[in-house]
Amino acid sequence: MDFKKAPLILFASLLFAVTGLQAQTKHKAKPPVKRTTGGLKASIDAGQKVFTQYCVSCHQADALGVPHMNPPLVKTTYVLGDKTRLIKIVLNGFNEDVEINGETYSNSMASHDFLKDQEIADVLTFVRNSFGNKAPAITAAQVKTVRATNKKS
């Protein structure tokens, strides 16, 4: 009967997380000094929506991916490391075999260059700060820069 509880707990924690996020964003409105933190929260929040729309079906709700097919987004250098490489994966897609922690992943990822700079920044910021990940935010300006040089090359 634990099974019955699992979705409830999941739902409750989601609710908690969402309300918590909202409460925090409201709080952050007061001290202007903390705007960056407020910006981070807002970006994570917006990024979660992009993730749910475009990423979740392959990378899964827990971002752990699918064995042999779709790579995990949790604690890998691809996600936590170089921002430019990460932004380029979203812009260009990914079509190579990739090995992460001894496991290979073979599915192709489509280019998501149709997403706006802000959407890419948000979703990457969300992924880099969720699922146990912790890494600096990515800004729309950074995406814009990579997109500009990406087109030339």
Partner: peptide
Amino acid sequence: VDDRKKGS
């Protein structure tokens, strides 16, 4: 044209 790309 582009596998799994939205709008392709």
